[in-house]
Computed example of a mutant assay.
Amino acid sequence: MKSYRADYVFSINADPIKNGIVTVDESGKIVAVSSQPTHPDVSIEQLSGILCPGFINTHCHLELSHLKNKVPKQTGLVDFIKNVQKFRNIDPAEAQDAALKADAEMYDNGIVAVGDISNSDLTIDIKSKSKLYYHTFIELFSFLPQNAKTVFDNGLELLRQFKPQSVSITPHAPYSVSKELFRLIRDYSDTHTNLLSIHNQECEDENKLYRYKTGKFLDLYEGFGIDISYFKPQARNSLQTVIPLLSNKQKILLVHNTCTNLKDIYFIKRFDRIINWCFCPGANLYIEGHLPKTELFLEQGFNITLGTDSLASNTGLNLLAEMKLLQDQVPSLTLNRLLEWGTINGAKYLGIDDEKGTLEVGKAPGLNLITGLDDFKITADTKVKRIV
């Protein structure tokens, strides 16, 4: 066993402990969290800073890691998609090497679990050998109704390849999934354990498409040779249109939410859907140049989590950096609340809160040391170091 004392221990499930001590066994399992030594024969390592559980990254695209520094910033989502498609296909060995380095980067940045989007089998071996816990979302997309069954069946085959790892199939986004494909995923989710994650309202053009059938997505479809003459405007935002198409038997993660408004939030409260939100502020700034209206989501009763998105749309995979961006946007956000979003809330969504997310006896959540805080505020000098 080994004990660590820090200026404060943020166990997340209880009030912070000043001069707290965390004791772990050889496997990393928590033996004790207290203000006094509970194992007198165990040496105590003194640390400066705060101790907290390992971070949970609920949204990443490991297989896009080779696109780091290749996609221009702040071009808007439609041009971002075009650039990803342009640069995406490279030698699989190069892509795997980049994904392996990204996995190591997350580990070094104190991340212990990841909800990761996959469109191929590229990361199966990496995840099977990783020190991190992964849940993989097999992402399905086709805006053409006639392709729905083929895309769905291909997704099930890829899901089988990922098993026995934790894996599910999920829709990509409202602008890339037909109602027919949404329904196939819903029917499957109603009868299987199938965690859901969907990109939501990343740009205003998504809402324009659904409200009026206008905006840049029309140019995108034309450029890809996709005929959407069948699609009729819905006179409502994309989120309000697709919520009824999602299963009410699975947890749903709505990711990005850059252009989600209060009417959207109130709308989904009318439905019996298990909604979780994920903010990826670094990616929002990288792609669109602005953040969601984070303050609208506070005190609404929803579970809020954090993600890094991919290295195609971010400069790094560091949840502490994501927390700082949100703190800078909404200064009233406390460190304890941001840590909740980055630990236990993500663990609850992924269904691993019995093992991770809080510093509690019997859990093995990982142990991070955060230094460089200024009166519990994250600064440019704040850093995270994995201890366990």
Rank of each mutant, 00 (worst) to 15 (best):
S3P: 13
R5M: 15
A6S: 06
A6C: 02
D15N: 14
P16T: 06
I17C: 12
I17W: 04
V24T: 13
V24F: 04
D25V: 11
S27R: 07
G28V: 05
G28P: 00
E45D: 15
L47W: 07
S48H: 12
L51E: 02
N57W: 00
T58A: 04
S65V: 05
V71M: 11
V71Y: 14
P72S: 11
T75L: 15
T75H: 08
V78D: 00
V78F: 03
D79F: 11
F80V: 06
I81R: 05
K82Q: 13
K82E: 13
Q85T: 00
N89C: 03
D91T: 05
P92A: 02
E94G: 00
E94Y: 05
E94V: 09
A104K: 12
G110L: 04
A113T: 08
S128D: 12
K131D: 11
L132I: 08
L132S: 04
H135N: 03
F143K: 08
L144H: 01
G155H: 01
F162T: 00
Q165M: 07
S166W: 00
V167A: 14
H172D: 01
Y175K: 05
S176D: 02
S176I: 01
S176Y: 04
E180T: 06
D187W: 05
T191S: 15
N194L: 04
N194D: 07
L195G: 03
L196P: 08
S197V: 01
H199V: 07
C203K: 02
R211D: 09
K216Y: 08
D219C: 00
I226V: 11
S229D: 13
F231C: 09
K232F: 05
P233T: 02
Q234I: 08
Q234V: 10
N237G: 03
L245V: 02
L253M: 13
V255E: 13
T258I: 14
C259I: 06
N261I: 07
D264G: 11
Y266L: 15
Y266D: 14
I268V: 13
I274P: 00
N276Q: 05
C280T: 13
N284L: 10
Y286T: 08
I287A: 12
H290N: 14
H290Y: 10
H290W: 03
I304H: 07
G307R: 03
D309K: 09
L311S: 07
L311Y: 02
T315S: 15
L317V: 03
N318Q: 03
L320G: 10
L320T: 10
M323C: 15
M323D: 13
Q327D: 07
D328K: 13
L335Y: 11
L338I: 04
N345A: 13
N345K: 09
A347W: 13
G351A: 08
G351P: 09
E355R: 11
T358N: 11
D374P: 07
F376Y: 09
A380E: 15
I387W: 14
